Simulated assay, not measured.
Amino acid sequence: MYKNLAAAFAAACLFSLSPSTSAQPLKAGFVYVTPITEAGWTRQHEEGRKAVDKALGASVKTTFVENVPEGADAERVIRDLAREGHTIIFTPSFGYMEPTLKVAQEFPDVKFESITGYKTAANVAVANARYYEGRYLAGVAAGRMTQSNLAGFVAGFPIPEVLQGINAFTLGMRSVNPRAQVKVVWLNTWFDPSKERDAAMALFNQNVDVIAFHTGSTAVMAAAQERGKMAVAYHSDMRKVAPDAQIIAVTHEWGAYYTARIKAVQQGQWQTGNVWGGVKEGMVRVGDFGPKVPKAVQAEVLAKQKDVASGKLHPFAGPITDNEGKLVVPAGQALSDAQILSMNYLVAGVQGKVIK
């Protein structure tokens, strides 16, 4: 499903990044769902945009629009960028998928990249990262560090990507600490620092001593720092916000992908398709350990990261049971990409339900 475009991505990364001979720079637009903050989802995509500028220099002109809500506003902003002559437009938010597809029909000569989307068109490619690989590895660290055997998880929406993360984190914890449990709070928003903080505080009041999250701000990390608890940073390294609380960070790296895709347009080699890269491709990594994490735990996690990259370790290898007692992955088997992408359950060890 992903092989053709993944191969093209890899090949594009090998091409020379010398400036284009075109007199006019290629215009590339980026649409961000939240403000650009010090760390988080949007910050990582902004770092990706900056990497494009550094790699391609005067041959490209990048622009961005931040804090664009999903829905009608997104459609308007994407259309405006197309009208302004942007040759390629990146839309990194799941809720931008449908607006991107709609605008793409109106501008067949413009290339669109729906980041975290899953629907393609002749001029719309999709890309995502295997965040669950990093989540599993962070779970190993959390499983080693917890004293209460109870972790918290502040979650945005119950889409497959988030469920993958919760489940992989739980499986990682329980791989080294079978008694570990993960308590989930759903927010039904990607970015609301006040709600994120309140959810974290509520979890800490329920004997949670390590917390993870899938939301857009640093509020959960700040709450952990304030309460003297431990936390897993997501999207970015967040030690500036939580120097004592952070035990590990799951970071996303978009610079190489964005640069390769823009270079493909410049060379007339862009094609639609799907990319789903992870630790192996350098799109996801764990590290940035905090001061509380023993060297032995750090070494264990980094060794397992190498095993994920090589294919030796699969986070969703059986046996796996859901939290209602149903066997979902038999021993000796592992989930396929299609099964991971359609995940709609929580695994054993998760306290919570999938909100329909």
Score class of each variant (00 low, 15 high):
Ala245Gly: 07
Ile248Phe: 00
Asp244Glu: 14
Ala256Ile: 09
Ala260Asp: 04
Ile262Ser: 07
Trp254Val: 13
Gly228Ile: 11
Ile248Ser: 01
Ala222Asp: 05
Ala249Glu: 07
Val250Cys: 10
Ile262Lys: 05
Gln225Leu: 06
Gln246Glu: 14
Pro243Gly: 08
Asp244Asn: 15
Ala223Asn: 07
Thr259Ala: 11
His252Asp: 05
Ala245Gln: 07
Ala256Phe: 02
Glu253Ser: 14
Ala223Gly: 12
Ala260Glu: 05
Gly255Glu: 12
Ile262Gly: 02
Ala233Gln: 03
Glu253Tyr: 15
Val232Gly: 00
Ile248Trp: 00
Glu226Arg: 10
Ile248Asp: 01
Arg239Trp: 04
Ala242Arg: 04
Ala245Ile: 00
Gly228Asp: 11
Asp244Leu: 06
Ala222Val: 05
His235Lys: 05
Val250Thr: 13
Ala231Trp: 00
Met238Ala: 12
Ala222Cys: 04
Gln267Cys: 04
Val250Ala: 07
Ile248Cys: 02
Ile262Asn: 05
Val265Tyr: 13
Tyr257Trp: 10
Gln267Met: 15
Val232Lys: 00
Ala223Thr: 13
Val265Trp: 14
Thr251Pro: 03
Ala233Pro: 04
Ala264Thr: 01
Ala222Ser: 08
Ile247Leu: 09
Gly228Lys: 08
Gln266Ala: 10
Val241Glu: 14
His252Val: 12
Lys240Arg: 15
Tyr234Gln: 15
Ala256Glu: 15
Ile247Ser: 03
Lys263Arg: 15
Ala264Tyr: 06
Lys263Gln: 13
Ile247Thr: 03
Arg239Thr: 12
Arg227Ala: 15
Ala264Ile: 01
Ala224Asp: 07
Lys229Pro: 03
Val265Phe: 14
Glu226Asn: 12
Lys229Gly: 03
Ala256Tyr: 13
Glu253Lys: 13
Ile247Cys: 02
Trp254Met: 05
Gln225Gly: 06
Lys263Ala: 12
His235Phe: 15
Val265Pro: 01
Val241Phe: 13
Lys263Asn: 10
Glu226Phe: 04
Val232Ser: 00
Gln267Pro: 01
Asp237Phe: 02
Ala233Trp: 09
Tyr257Gly: 04
Thr251Trp: 03
Ala264Phe: 09
Gln225Asn: 01
Thr251Ile: 10
Ala224Met: 05
Met238Leu: 05
Arg227Val: 09
Ala222Leu: 13
Ala233Asp: 10
Val241Met: 10
Ala264Arg: 04
Met230Trp: 13
Val250Leu: 12
Ser236Met: 08
Ile262Thr: 07
Val265Glu: 03
Val232Ala: 01
Lys263Ile: 03
Gln267Leu: 15
Ala233Val: 01
Glu253His: 15
Ala242Phe: 07
